[in-house]
Design a protein around this nucleic acid. Structure first.
Length: 253
DNA sequence: ATGTCACAGTCCCTGTGA
């Protein structure tokens, strides 16, 4: 199976790039973030024409997450089920795996209420994935808005006092991993940065000023079955790209 | 900090978020 996570930064604006990518790569499952659409605007028909089922949890102007699959899409769940109005997580069973598409809050600044919300959100995600006692292998992917270690940041000194690299955020990721999940890209590539996001500003992509914040957490069953993992940097180039590149994993279950 | 992008409303510019 080929599974990809991709923050598309508006599926309305990105549909030409996303549909083109699907036709070129034919993934089995896509985890999308920041669709920035209502469910009414989501291109269910467009995905269907490409041979895919899809499920969306949208709210409109902000956030929005989706799962797109050509290997089945069953038992979708939207949100944590706790009344949080922000559309940031959707789960589904696609063939042999249970998958989640996550868009972790940005946090904005360490002293901002959105940072507190971010840490609480990651704690709720930990509680959700900790309950996966059922038999299905799991893939929990998305834009985590946290660079797990300094290797995942082009210049840690430029992020002093900033979000995305703070100890509490990294500890929150650690708590998720401690439920038995593996940061797949890092497991397969222990020494390469493997950045997945570059700011639109300042020529960041050209200068290599990136972060690795788009992550695939998988259980040991999936990790052991994985044959390849990579970032499709070409998708960050060209006309109207997202500021994130797709992160792909290939495994055989 | 910011050389950008996308969204909605104030609607062809501006404020907000990333």
């Amino acid at each position: 199976m080929k599974v990809v996570t991709w923050n598309v930064n508006s599926l309305t604006a990105r549909w030409p790039r996303v549909s083109e990518w699907i036709e070129a790569n034919r993934p089995d499952v896509m985890l999308l973030q920041e669709t920035k659409q209502t469910d009414e605007k989501f291109p269910f028909a467009g995905f269907s024409e490409l041979g895919y089922e899809s499920a969306h949890y949208g709210q409109g102007q902000w956030n929005g997450v989706a799962i797109v699959s050509k290997v089945g899409l069953e038992s979708p769940t939207r949100g944590f089920g706790d009344g949080d109005p922000e559309a940031r997580i959707i789960g589904a069973t696609c063939g042999p795996v249970r998958v989640y598409s996550c868009y972790v809050p940005n946090g904005r600044a360490l002293d901002n209420p959105h940072y507190t919300y971010k840490l609480a959100w990651l704690s709720r995600l930990r509680d959700l994935v900790a309950q996966r006692a059922e038999a299905l292998p799991h893939v929990v992917g998305g834009d985590f808005n946290v660079a797990p270690t300094d290797l995942d940041c082009y210049d840690p000194s430029a992020f002093t006092g900033a979000t995305h690299v703070s100890e509490p955020e990294r500890a929150a990721l650690g708590a998720i991993a401690a439920t038995g999940l593996v940061d797949l890209t890092r497991r397969l590539h222990p020494d390469e940065p493997c950045f997945s996001w570059w700011d639109y500003r300042n020529g960041a992509f050209r200068r290599g000023w990136g972060l690795r914040i788009d992550l695939l957490y998988v259980d040991e069953v999936v990790a052991a079955a994985t044959t390849a993992s990579y970032v499709d940097r070409d998708a960050r180039k060209g006309e109207k790209p997202s500021d994130h590149a797709p992160v792909v994993a290939e495994f055989t279950l």
